[in-house]
Amino acid sequence: MPESLKMILVLTLISGAAGLGLSAMNDYTKPLAADNNRKFTLSSINGVIPNAATPDACQKYAPAFDNAPDKDAICVGASTVYRGRKGNEVVGIAVEAIGEEAYSGTITVLVGIRMNDGQLSGLKVLKHAETPGLGSIMTKCEFQQQMVGKGPGDINWTVVKDGGDVNQISGATISSRSLLRAIHKAQDIWKNNREDILNKAPIAEGEVCDGK
């Protein structure tokens, strides 16, 4: 057999065997991985729609809803809005909003808003690449305490540096602004998309909101 033919044959066979093995592995692990992702989403939503009059960011509460919000989501623009219902009434929403122009790319935040008065009921930073120890402080409950439990009219939702009431993280004003941008998006959705939140049919499982 000529050398070139042997090369082609060996590489093809090995790649084929690798592909077969991987597709079997994929079939086996995919449902498990999807289940993990679902559990993670659900536990994040649990944390931002708490059953408390004025929630404290550092306390753990039972969720205020009794449905499965991860299966009851709608898209508003590029944001995913999960609806927490008690009985059939929407008691709170968890908005997966993107904060642009963070220090390093964008941040993804799950913002909990109480339905009747727009109170910020919880915050969870899902994805960020901010500087550890500086921008990453936004994931800490001690920083979030000043915002969680406050209604849209209670404080001026901009950082102190820009004339607002939110103490920016020292050394990470840009990250703080980006987090507030995500919160603003969620508050706007609560204010302007009430009809959609109450009446729109949920998106299919696995569907992604891309703003189109």
């Binding site: 690798a18 093995g21 991987l22 592995m25 994929n26 086996y28 692990t29 498990l32 991985a33 993990n36 992702n37 559990k39 993670f40």
Partner: peptide, 15 residues
């Protein structure tokens, strides 16, 4: 191939 196996296994078992 082995790296992809590890990646899949981690996502499934050690999230």
């Amino acid at each position: 191939t082995f790296v992809t196996i590890v990646d899949m296994a981690l996502k499934a078992f050690m999230f």
